[in-house]
Structure formats: C-alpha cells, structure tokens
C-alpha cells in the first residue's frame, strides 16, 4: 500500500540547505527550539544527552593553519524517502513513528512511543533524541511555550517534524480562505529564521519549485547517499571537500 501511495502522491516536502550561504549563526537552531518547545538541561554540553532537532556540525578540510577551512552544517531530520519505509519507521514496534505518504513527512507521536530507541539505532544521521528526563522549564518560561506543539515526557523519542504543525495551520488557513490545501506551501521555523535565506523548503515533486530546481544543482549532495536512504534534505556546496564529506559519517 505504501509503495503505491508513495508513487502516487504529488507532494514531497523537502529542504535544500545552501552551505555557501550559511554564516553559521545558528538562528535556525534557536528558532527550532523555540518553535518546538525543545527542553534544555542545566548542562547541555554532553551532546548525547542534549536534545536538539537541528544539530549543528562543523566540517573541516583537514588542512593546517592557514590553509584550514571549515563550514557549518545544520542537520535537521532527513525525512528519508527510501521505498516503503524510512530506516526509523521500519523498526518502530508500536507505529509511533511513521511516514505520511501524502507529504513524505516522517512523524513522531510522543504518547505512542514506548522509548525502546530502536529508531535511534536505525537512524544513520543521529537525528533522533531521547528524553532521558522529564522536560522541565523554569517557572516563568512555561509562559513562552508554543501552543502549536505538545511538550514531551520522559522516556520518549523526539525529532524534527519539518514543523508539520505549521503545515496543518497553513492548510486550515487555505481552507478558510477557500483555497486548495493540498501541497500548500508552508515555511518551517528554521527556514523562516535563516537571515541569509540559506534554507529553502518546498515540494520536491513540483518541478517549478525552488527546492526541486536547487536539488538538481551541480553543487547539490545529500548525506550518506550510499545507504540509499533517499534523504529529502539536500545540501549545496561549491567546495568539493565539503561534498565529499557528505558520504562519510559526521563527527
């Protein structure tokens, strides 16, 4: 069934991140935290314990000073489009994560998750985070939680959703204004936040869309393409040393 629908749907939301335009300010990652009510810890320096949907990596060319160069690579969930299943949805024993075949968005339902963390082991991008503790906020900061996204609880996995709640809202707005909600354009928080417009989001199956065009750019590459996970997040870089690292494990 999924295969059939997969081919049928004319909508595949995807993202292109232009590393040549990225200035490494990480406004995207802050916007993501704010939008998605991502909790923080008193000590967030242990990166395997710290929750971050938009993780920031540093790629280096491996040369010595002053030939050394680096770029910053923001990494959301890749929303893998491999046939039938994404790596994570394939292993989930309780259907808590699943790919919406109408849009290609890989979602995560927190109340359903049993915290077995199979999906985390299956994800080759470390895009998934586990709530080791109950998320807590200082008393006053509860005020600034976004009502569009539910807070999680201890013992469940969470990850980037391409801000699918924004899609829901965009669809509703379209309906109320008498427009067709299918394949509607919407903007995830990180895309909206990027001051230099380095992140572009849209329907990869629409040949006229900017994402579709950019994804075929000669600077385009994806992370770990060799695994055939078919990520829907593309990167652009004019540096060969950057593109080459796309197929290696990120450190």
């Amino acid at each position: 069934m999924s295969k059939k629908e997969h081919e049928k749907s004319s909508v595949r939301y995807g993202m292109v991140i232009d590393l040549d335009k990225c200035t490494g300010c990480m406004a995207c990652a802050v916007a993501c935290q704010e939008e998605n009510n991502i909790s923080f810890l008193k000590d967030d320096s242990i990166k395997t314990r710290s929750i971050n949907w938009m993780r920031i990596y540093k790629l280096e060319n491996g040369k010595k000073y002053p030939e050394h160069r680096h770029v910053i690579l923001p990494r959301p969930c890749m929303h893998c489009d491999s046939p039938h299943h994404s790596p994570c949805t394939f292993v989930c024993p309780v259907n808590a994560t699943q790919r919406d075949e109408e849009t290609g968005i890989v979602n995560q339902v927190y109340p359903r998750c049993i915290g077995c963390r199979y999906c985390m082991a299956a994800c080759p991008y470390y895009a998934r985070n586990f709530n080791w503790w109950d998320p807590t906020w200082p008393k006053d900061m509860v005020e600034m939680l976004n009502p569009d996204v539910s807070t999680r609880m201890r013992g469940v996995v969470e990850k980037c959703t391409f801000c699918s709640h924004r899609l829901l809202k965009a669809k509703d707005k379209a309906r109320v204004n008498g427009e067709n909600p299918k394949g509607i354009e919407y903007t995830p928080a990180c895309v909206e936040a990027c001051p230099t417009g380095a992140i572009v989001f849209g329907n990869l199956h629409d040949p006229e869309s900017e994402v579709a065009k950019l994804s075929k750019d000669k600077r385009a590459f994806r992370l770990l393409e060799k695994l055939k996970t078919e990520p829907k997040v593309y990167y652009l870089s004019s540096h060969e040393w950057v593109r080459k690292q796309g197929d290696n494990d990120l450190k």
Binding site: P111, T136, L145, P147, S150, T151, M153
Partner: peptide, 11 residues
Amino acid sequence: QNWSWRPKSQP
C-alpha cells in the same frame, strides 16, 4: 500518555 505534571501550553 499525558503525564499530568508536564507543562502544557494553552492555545
């Protein structure tokens, strides 16, 4: 599934 002590944001 709802963990009542978890903060919830009122719409």
